[in-house]
């Protein structure tokens, strides 16, 4: 089955050099059509290489585009349309992974990395003044900073 699918993928890729939607599929209601385009742009053409169904001429992409429009015409919300497709094709169909399982890791990574970097920088800059204090003498600025710091601590002169 897998081999058949990949052979199919190659054939379809060869037959489908160009991209974008087909005028014949359009919904009569422009608001619904706009929703359909927005959803289509975030759904994967499963037999193509990294193409959305909105930008593929493959037969499967066409079928999916029609399904999306049918669901919208039937009154589904955007999320219901996505759920419908995920139930049939799995999470693989979503170009924007959902925030659970490995997807959660994907969404949590950027803020986590920034937080780690921020904390690291904060610690590095906090550690710097004492490091300077071990040098031979303190500059006037450093003296002032040290005083300010020790005042903050507990008004005691020795750190």
């Amino acid at each position: 089955m897998r081999r058949l699918l990949s052979a199919l993928a190659v054939l379809l890729a060869l037959a489908a050099p160009a991209a974008a939607v087909d005028p014949s599929e359009r919904l009569p209601d422009p608001a619904q059509e706009e929703r359909a385009r927005a959803i289509s742009e975030e759904l994967r053409c499963l037999v193509c290489q990294n193409q959305s169904i909105d930008a593929s001429d493959a037969q499967l992409a066409k079928d999916l585009r029609i399904i999306v429009r049918e669901r919208i015409a039937a009154g589904d919300s955007d999320n219901e349309v996505r759920d419908f497709l995920v139930a049939r094709y799995g999470e693989f169909v979503l170009l924007r992974p959902r925030a659970h399982g490995i997807g959660l890791l994907l969404w949590a990574l950027p803020p986590a990395l920034l937080l780690i970097a921020g904390t690291g920088l904060f610690i590095a800059f906090r550690r710097r003044p004492p490091a300077a204090a071990t040098a031979d003498s303190l500059s006037a600025d450093e003296e002032a900073a040290l005083k300010a710091l020790s005042r903050e601590e507990d008004e005691s002169p020795n750190l």
């Binding site: 959305s52 999470e91 979503l94 170009l95 992974p97 490995i102 994907l106």
Partner: peptide, 30 residues
């Protein structure tokens, strides 16, 4: 570097998941 890390992770995750028999897409919207 955080941006590079995010792109790296997003590019490699589908490969890693697929090596373990799963399937996930990380595409332009992400």
């Amino acid at each position: 570097t955080v941006a590079a890390g995010v792109v790296l992770f997003g590019t490699l995750v589908p490969l890693i998941v697929s090596a373990f028999g799963g399937a996930i897409s990380v595409g332009a919207p992400y």
